[in-house]
Design a protein around this nucleic acid. Sequence first.
DNA 1: CTGAAAGCGCTTACAG
DNA 2: CTGAAAGCGCTTACAG
Lengths: 340, 340
Amino acid sequence: MATIGEVARVAGVSRSTASYALSGKRSISADVRRRVEDAVRELGYTPNAGARALATSQTRVIGLLAQFLEDEFAPAMLQYMLGVSNTARELGYDILLGTEADGRSALRRMTSSRMVDGIVLLNVAEQDDRLPILREAIQPGALVGLPGDCTGVDVFDLDFEEAGRVMVEHLRRLGHRELILVSQPQHVIERGGAYVWRLQNAALEAARLSGITLHAEFGSSHQPEVGRELNALLDAHPSATGLLINNEAAAAALPSVLHARGLAAPADLSVVGRYSDEFARTFSLPYSSIESAPDRLGRMAVRELVRRIEGQVGPDEPHVVRFVSPELVDRGSIGAPPER
Amino acid sequence: MATIGEVARVAGVSRSTASYALSGKRSISADVRRRVEDAVRELGYTPNAGARALATSQTRVIGLLAQFLEDEFAPAMLQYMLGVSNTARELGYDILLGTEADGRSALRRMTSSRMVDGIVLLNVAEQDDRLPILREAIQPGALVGLPGDCTGVDVFDLDFEEAGRVMVEHLRRLGHRELILVSQPQHVIERGGAYVWRLQNAALEAARLSGITLHAEFGSSHQPEVGRELNALLDAHPSATGLLINNEAAAAALPSVLHARGLAAPADLSVVGRYSDEFARTFSLPYSSIESAPDRLGRMAVRELVRRIEGQVGPDEPHVVRFVSPELVDRGSIGAPPER
DNA sequence: CTGAAAGCGCTTACAG
DNA sequence: CTGAAAGCGCTTACAG
């Protein structure tokens, strides 16, 4: 594999001149530039990434830490990963992927050995044990998900509280008075999945303020349990007229559950979920939903991260905490409550 | 960030001694080893990956090229990625992920700039335009999926032909005489997704040999089209008693289609798919299926790749082409044809 | 058992 | 506009 030394020799210039001709960091005579470019083409030269990283302290690689936890729904994670990966590439960065269960050691390895210029953390928990490590790292970090303590990192998340309020409010205006909310499994909360209770508490509060009964329950993240649980919930609350779903597995299971019970949305039951449009298409979900915008969040996180990496944001400029406003995608599954 | 020079200084030895004490590549007095280890701990030293790569020509990174094509079902891809990523980590390698649509340029970038020690290609087509680039690269490559030309790379794939035969044979023995096979979309074939016709041709041949009627059709990779197509197929072939599904989107859509038609498997219709157990769980699919073993294939590919990278397989030792035998996972959706 | 030195392939001040 | 040289942080023959 050709080195810049060979390029220089073939072009009849010094290595530094060859380097500058390629980087454009100082002016080069047209003749020399052409000779260097010809030599590059002739030799099929590509700079060695490791050598360049050593010389510049820049790897042009972003570390992406995803975790596939037992109690979360894997296909939903994929959307975030692709949002991050595609945006990184557009900005000239590659992705070093860490999927291991022990995110701490992956993070430590990537940052302390300088394999990456920055880190994106997915699936951030309220008390995320990766955060102390990230804060000690010299590389900047961007999170998708809201931790309890946001110092030292840029944070991006859906406004789950507003999402909870929007769901309740929307159904209230149509005349609903008794609703069921199915959240993620309880372990997700125990592990610190703050978004679960952020949405749930806001929904409960909104319901309380307008005198609506809201049955808030946890659902499993797996089939067929979650299907059974949905059935049990509908049995337990026969007068409920609206179903709020903050649980991807439950959303995916709902069509067959409703089918089996002979229920149609919105004629018999209004349904509103919280998931991405891509997810809705994949699982053919006909329910209106709060768009969770994984691609957009991934994109925002990478954009801000790259701004920090490249010094467009000073190291002591304050970090951002940005919430994406929930947007309701209408798929026609919300209507007035049925007359009884 | 500490360098090995600082470690050496703190330990009171030369840099080479510090390096050898850490690598264990030559014998070191117990005293010196302890001093070096103490210094490492005190300084929180981690070797700089770029510098090490430059010195050793080894990055301990594997490039993973995945593509998320319009006509393929994304959640199925994720399984392969995780199989590769997790196995790589177990063997001490990190994953550089390329998800861009232009796999050629990603491949070129990773290999020619020496960011990786080897490459895993997912989703390999019959005539895969990434292969010429991979063959020119100095790094070894392992594929999941069978290309027309296997020279110069290690290849791993499900034995789709045997899978087609097993599906037909299984139903034949139970007395079925008319079957429907739903394959991936036609574009997948046109693009060179050889597995589609490998399974289909073998199934057609097996059916022909035993005098069974097999209606082989392509299905869409998206909802709700594929649901409509399934309905149309069942309408068109009312006397078919078995359904073979080599199309993840169709499999995911089938429960609600059968439900809507009031059909149960296997009482009214025997169903057998081709997808992974993990996929079955995610989508709550109650159908017996040929296990597509994405984690196992990913694991095999990485294992062999690492053997090549680390020189356990000589550069001129022949490459392997290994097929995983289809295994039928019985979920109770196959039975005798209904009496009419 | 240990050290001084060369080298991996770049970039970038320094000098002209 | 161009070149010679130092340096990034490692590893590893070479010498003792």
